[in-house]
Design a protein around this nucleic acid. Structure first.
Length: 449
RNA sequence: GUGCCUUUAGCUCAAUGGCAGAGCGCCUGACUGUGGCUCAGGAGGUUGUGGGUUCGAGACCCAUAAGGCACCCCA
């Protein structure tokens, strides 16, 4: 008796049943199709990078999975110089720096791949997950119009995916930096203050106030003014808010941030972004210091606990670790695994079939196999995913098979039908049966939808 | 890496320290050319693992593993 290895789930490495996987893949398709609709080109980089590439940004090495061989001779090292990528931005930076003479700029690419993170899994945090990124990267500069495109792409993705109501919240780091500058803060203080503001939603106003005073060194008065400034975006409409910001005229940096924000909002609207799908929110700063201008976060209104399901922003220099050439850009990223798995749990996205098969050709009479296979071939030739029931079983079991898998149509043909040169097709969702000429079958099935 | 909680049938969960159960799912039949619905029946368990206390442990104690949650982190 061989030793049985008990199969068990691996925490943080999600896997799905077919019905759910179909939903997930449909979402992947939607993302891909929409990215291409906006002219982003596909890119896939290896699952691994050299360790030195991955740690170039001073990343958290604890959370990087390194690649090693399971066994090595005593005199050799089983470890390799490779490690699994933990996001798609670092690989992109390496890729663009490496291939920049062959790429056409502005470089618009999308990338949909798994990434791996060595963190302790918890709700909505996985160790293996899909990221879907788009970026527009320039040599020297990139139009601010690209900043306006990002939320519009996301709007199209989420709308097509059917995730329910959502809002892309956006702000501008230059603006908020300018504001803190006007309070007399040093660059270091500003960085600390931005990190504090980033935590606003998570830890609440009072704790952020304390952070601003203790960590960023603001006076209680300045902290109060900062929080009031940020809160001002909460209840103001977009127009009123932008007008208000423009009237403040705090300093050059602030004014530039305001002007950028106004331009982005205006161009988003021209691109068809409806007002209820976005909101200017000054509490959005992103924790990452490499964002320099526009920043985005997206949340689902009916699932606020999910946090941001899609975020990004503008950066001055993508690949400073890999080239001296300045490559600014703007990008946004969807954490698809967290999003889709959660929406499946919540019932927002519903699986409805465990197979792509739309028509099952039953094999009522094994001696008619040639006819059955022919019917299937004809359905497939018309683009209808079709399966033939291959085992020997009673018709009841064959229909049960179709029913359990969520196959909608069953073709049933036996002595009676063949005698008339016809076939019967049954709609399992309604129980309705229809008898017709075999050559009419594909068209009939297509009509039913 | 730290803390808290959990672990009983495929799944969700019951069971005063005293016969291990239910619902759902699965299988069979009612139904030899018709799935779902209904009805009848059936299979399925070393109660995560190892030790201890006890006449007796699924329950109490210790250890351990796995899972969940929070912290940390989130490029």
């Amino acid at each position: 008796m061989p030793t049985i290895i008990t199969p068990k789930p691996m925490s943080g490495f999600p896997e799905l049943l077919p019905a759910e996987q179909i939903v997930f893949n449909r979402c992947l398709d939607t993302v891909r199709r929409t990215f291409e609709l906006f002219g982003f080109a596909p890119l896939e980089t290896p699952a691994v990078e050299r360790k030195e590439v991955l740690t170039s940004k001073g990343g958290n090495e604890k959370e990087i999975y390194a690649l090693s061989r399971l066994a090595a001779r005593p005199d050799e090292d089983a470890s390799t110089e490779y490690a699994l990528h933990f996001d798609l931005t670092v690989p992109l930076a390496r890729y663009v720096a490496q291939h920049k003479e062959k790429l056409v700029f502005p470089f618009r690419r999308y990338q949909i791949q798994k990434v791996w993170r060595g963190e302790r899994p918890q709700a909505g945090r996985y160790r293996e997950l899909y990221q879907c990124d788009i970026d527009v990267i320039g040599r020297g500069s990139v139009s601010l119009l690209a900043d306006a495109e990002m939320p519009v792409v996301i709007y199209h993705v989420f709308t097509a995916m059917g995730v329910g109501p959502f809002v892309v919240r956006l702000s501008n780091r230059r603006l908020i930096q300018g504001f803190f500058e006007s309070l007399g803060l040093s660059p270091e203080q500003i960085t600390a203050a931005l990190h504090a503001v980033d935590d606003l939603e998570k830890i609440g106003v009072d704790k952020v106030r304390a952070l601003l005073v203790d960590k960023a060194g603001l006076s209680p008065d300045s902290a109060a003014r900062a929080l009031a400034f940020i809160a001002s975006s909460e209840h103001m409409g977009t127009e009123a808010l932008l007008g208000h910001l423009a009237s403040l005229n705090l300093n050059e940096r602030f004014n530039q941030g305001v002007a950028e924000l106004c331009s982005v909002v205006q161009n988003m609207r021209s691109l068809g972004m409806p007002d209820n799908a976005f909101k200017v929110d000054l509490s959005i700063v992103r924790g990452l210091d490499y964002y320099t201008g526009t920043v985005y976060e997206t949340r689902l209104l009916e699932h606020p606990d999910l946090g941001s399901v899609c975020s990004g922003g503008r950066y001055d220099d993508l690949a400073s670790y890999f080239t001296t050439e300045k490559l600014p850009g703007v990008g946004i990223s969807i954490g698809l695994s967290r999003l889709v798995l959660r929406l499946l749990e919540a019932g927002v996205l519903k699986p409805n079939a465990a197979t792509p098969t739309q028509v099952l050709v039953t094999t009522l009479d094994p001696s008619r196999l040639r006819e059955y296979l022919g019917i299937a071939a004809s359905l497939r030739a018309h683009g209808l995913p079709t399966e033939v029931y291959l085992e020997q079983a009673r018709i009841g079991d064959q229909l049960k098979y179709a029913s359990r898998k969520g196959i909608r149509f069953a073709v049933i043909a036996g002595e009676t039908e063949f005698a008339q040169g016809q076939v019967k097709v049954k709609d399992l969702s309604s129980g309705f049966e229809h008898v017709l000429q075999p050559d009419q079958l594909p068209a009939w099935v297509k009509e039913q939808r």
